[in-house]
Amino acid sequence: MSMAVNPKPPEKMMFQLTLRRRGISDQAVLRTMEEVPREVFVEPRDRDDAYRDSALAIPCGQTISQPFVVAYMTERLQLHKDHRVLEIGTGSGYQAAILSRLCKHVLTIERYRTLADSARKRLEGLGYYNVEVLLGDGFDVPAGAGDFDRIIVTAAMEQIPDKLLQRLEPGGILIAPVGPHQGAQTLVRAVRTETGFERKDLVDVRFVPALPGVAREM
């Protein structure tokens, strides 16, 4: 007598298949993308579309990145379990949630109070206690936060500030979308070496702009 097994929802099956077809091969990243419930991080009206490979709108004029971009950026960070990671641009908290399952600690900085508060609540509700959500300016990371093994920027910067690069530990990796605020940017990967920084352009992307300061409203 065979036992009935509930199949995965079709959209979850396509979600994983799409990531693999587009070149994501790191098994830890794929497993984490499978386990973190993306539907919790989108607006209620968009939950039926949570696993489509597209960006979705969230409050304050921001977006949650498409799954492939989240997986791609995460894979290129080459995370280890003992890493401290800085994220600039918390948004809904989805990228931080993915990072948290693959490293020791995540400090994520958000300039909109509404987003910071809701992301903190979501992450705590899921038991992702190794994430610290900070309301602040991603262009002015508090000195007391120390340095980081990895830095990920999830909003477009016209150029990577040198003082952000200087927060990388030796051998550390930074990934950020770099380019004009209006139009496409290039995802850039910078590695801190003994003599400076090795920079490599990866793929074209499109992110909302990274803006200095803490937003006065929202």
Results as ranks from 00 to 15, higher is better:
36 V>P: 01
36 V>R: 02
36 V>G: 10
37 P>T: 08
39 E>Q: 10
41 F>N: 09
45 R>K: 14
46 D>W: 15
47 R>I: 14
49 D>M: 14
50 A>V: 10
51 Y>Q: 06
53 D>V: 06
54 S>H: 14
55 A>I: 03
55 A>G: 12
56 L>C: 08
56 L>Q: 14
57 A>S: 15
57 A>L: 11
61 G>D: 15
65 S>A: 14
65 S>V: 09
72 Y>T: 01
72 Y>F: 15
72 Y>N: 01
74 T>H: 03
75 E>L: 00
76 R>I: 08
77 L>N: 05
78 Q>L: 08
78 Q>N: 09
79 L>G: 01
79 L>H: 06
80 H>N: 10
80 H>K: 01
81 K>D: 10
81 K>S: 07
82 D>V: 09
87 E>W: 03
88 I>R: 04
88 I>W: 04
89 G>Q: 07
89 G>F: 10
91 G>Q: 06
92 S>E: 13
93 G>Q: 04
95 Q>H: 07
96 A>V: 06
98 I>R: 01
99 L>S: 00
102 L>G: 12
102 L>A: 08
103 C>R: 00
106 V>Q: 06
106 V>N: 03
107 L>E: 05
107 L>R: 10
109 I>G: 00
109 I>V: 11
109 I>W: 00
112 Y>G: 00
114 T>G: 01
115 L>T: 07
116 A>W: 13
118 S>D: 06
119 A>C: 12
119 A>T: 15
119 A>S: 11
120 R>L: 00
121 K>P: 02
121 K>G: 00
122 R>I: 09
123 L>T: 01
124 E>H: 03
127 G>A: 06
131 V>K: 00
131 V>L: 13
132 E>F: 08
133 V>L: 12
135 L>M: 02
135 L>I: 15
138 G>N: 12
140 D>L: 01
142 P>D: 12
143 A>F: 02
144 G>V: 07
144 G>N: 06
145 A>F: 14
145 A>C: 10
145 A>I: 11
147 D>V: 07
147 D>Q: 13
148 F>I: 00
149 D>P: 03
151 I>Q: 00
151 I>N: 03
151 I>F: 07
152 I>A: 06
159 Q>P: 03
159 Q>L: 07
160 I>E: 02
162 D>Q: 14
163 K>V: 13
163 K>F: 05
164 L>D: 09
166 Q>N: 10
166 Q>K: 11
167 R>S: 10
168 L>F: 06
169 E>N: 15
170 P>A: 14
172 G>P: 05
173 I>R: 08
173 I>G: 02
173 I>E: 11
173 I>D: 06
174 L>I: 14
175 I>W: 07
175 I>Y: 04
178 V>C: 07
